[in-house]
Design a protein around this nucleic acid. Structure first.
Lengths: 358, 358
DNA sequence: CTGAAAGCGCTTACAG
DNA sequence: CTGAAAGCGCTTACAG
């Protein structure tokens, strides 16, 4: 069957020859240009269909000077930043908008090199995309500036205070982290708090840590607050608990910078006989799937990854169309109160006790 | 900054004019064609770099009659078939191989229409990919034949007995399901077995059910065996248990066609006071993330999704290169024995008690 | 060995 | 209103 397709491809000329017009006329007819009479148009379309005509995207792209595609760039470290499920949601949101515009979606990842150089280069070193969504880039990622300087329209997901002119979509990680920490303090009377931070080379990690500190300071609990730096992996959550040794027994509240680490901490706590939420309240961040299925289920901050991607992609098309618009957009997050903080009884199998918008 | 990039793009002609040669010479120099002297080549490359030359993928594609991209086609129903994490693994495997070949990866999804027609059409109706990986297609998906007939090289992940000439990569779902069922029978003395099947419009669902039946028959347990049809969702796992009513108390072993349903069943069983694995042994299938984090953790069949995608993509490139090779390739799966069957103690926090290759 | 044309398949600006 | 050329940016086959 490959044979059939290996035959020379059907072009406008083939249709033109069959119908007895010029390729120009065929092009116009297929584009419903009123210059071509309804009659001829119909004949041409029928012939195109009969011959199995498929337009050449390469020829179109060359002629129109548009690739007809956008790229989703995911530098290496992405896996570590949010984990797999985050990326699925982003892909879903981006696809949705790209599909509406009938534009192809290129996914440029790089798993091998440290900074995902190739992920950028693949997009920059060929004009195969008319714009790009960049997600999960590190604060000091050296490729962001060249990417933007290349003139390719770019929308970034995340927070990049050092690139004030960049177009970005994100959430207020600091306020969210503060709200969650204050929930443990005010709703559960937790006073000796631990934060397991994310990687501090990503703004998200810095902001979530600072939000934790904001809450702790506002309630004058700095004296009993601790911060351990993690790397967003489940294992680093486990290690954070192990490294604290006996000090962990002084802690009654834990805010982790993501759900994976919260889960790692949960298993570590369980293995040394501490109960959640009886002995400690735990909160995570992300709600990309894990938090709902653990026992106890994890209280967390729901990050609207799919919506972030949708908004970013919609804005990207605006930029590609030359439209003005915002440079920074912030989406709301929700606190999802489940079992690990104590809001929801352990025998309650509903998804969550309640959801708080902040 | 967009302004910079909006300037006319740098082409071979710009470099040629600057250096004082023809675009042909520039093209050859950049391709390291020995026809161009080392000296000139160097000057040309330096100039190309200075001007920020980026080749036009569209022009190349048109000239070379190759798009320089492959597509990953995911029909709508994909989400239901394996869930998000499956797709992440496939994307990872496909990216890996495409990256090695320096080929772009197009992801063509369709979330809206019933059969994901657009996902196929986007790839077929433009020559934007030189080949395609198709995953999670239904047995009777009406687009598979047109896709293959279109002449585009295609490798499918899964099992398609009705398309004997198609190139496919998969696992032996039937044997795996049989092995898992027999594990419950022989290692845990379970004799009254329930299977919650997947959707039977996918071969996977049929094969896993048939494997269950094979085991049950081989051990003469047909009389006490039950099958409930699910749809791979967690909710359908819950519903399967609820619908059985009091009959569930007769059952001592459950094999679900995926982990989501196994987890749904687990929560439903818990809510009516049944304990796993004390009262029932449970097994799922997939091991894409969920099974490891639940309490109890789920015994499951590990489906090597990433490897399937790698093998499929490698084979796709062979076909695109005109090389002969296999039409059907089967990868091995493993039984991952965790807590839900009874192999691993509930207080053991290791990943799994043991892993069996089958 | 080297120079310059042809042509991939489109679409639109131009000439008649 | 309609016909046919020009040209997007490449690469390779061809002529000298």
């Amino acid at each position: 069957m490959a044979g059939r397709g290996r035959l020379r491809r059907v072009t406008l000329r083939d249709i033109a020859d069959r119908v007895g017009v010029t390729p120009t006329a065929v092009s116009m007819a297929l584009a419903d240009n009123p210059r071509i009479s309804a009659n001829t148009r119909q004949t041409i379309k029928a012939t195109a269909h009969d011959l199995g005509y498929v337009p050449s995207s390469a020829a179109r792209a060359l002629r129109n000077q548009r690739a007809g595609a956008i790229a989703l760039i995911v530098p290496t470290t992405a896996t570590h930043v949010f984990g797999h499920s985050y990326f699925m949601h982003v892909l879903e949101g981006t696809s949705l908008v790209a599909n509406e515009r009938d534009v192809q979606l290129l996914v440029s990842t790089n798993r091998d090199t440290e900074h995902g150089l190739a992920a950028y280069e693949r997009v920059m070193r060929s004009r195969s995309a008319d714009g790009a969504i960049l997600t999960s880039a590190a604060i000091d990622d050296p490729m962001i500036e060249p990417l933007i300087a290349s003139g390719l329209p770019v929308v970034m997901i995340g927070s990049f205070p050092y690139l004030p002119s960049a177009v970005t979509v994100g959430v207020d990680d600091r306020a969210a982290s503060r709200a969650m920490t204050e929930h443990l303090i005010t709703a559960h009377n937790r006073t000796s708090l631990l934060h397991i931070s994310g990687t501090l080379d990503h703004q998200t990690g810095v902001d979530r840590r600072d939000g934790f500190l904001d809450a702790v300071r506002a309630h004058h609990l700095e004296g009993d607050a601790r911060i351990v730096e993690g790397d967003l992996s489940e294992e680093s959550g486990r290690r954070a608990i192990a490294d604290l040794g006996e000090q962990i027994r002084e802690i009654d509240g834990l805010v982790a910078a993501n759900d994976d680490m919260a889960f790692g901490a949960l298993t570590a706590l369980r293995s040394i006989g501490l109960e959640v939420p009886a002995d400690l309240s735990i909160a995570g961040c992300d709600d990309f799937g894990l938090a709902r299925v653990t026992t106890p289920s994890l209280t967390t901050i729901r990050v609207p990854a799919k919506e972030l991607a949708q908004v970013a992609t919609t804005r990207l098309f605006e930029i590609m169309d030359g439209k003005d618009g915002w440079h920074r957009h912030v989406l709301e997050v929700e606190l999802v109160l489940r079992q690990s903080c104590g809001c929801q009884p352990l025998d309650d199998t509903d998804d969550a006790a309640s959801v708080l918008e902040i």
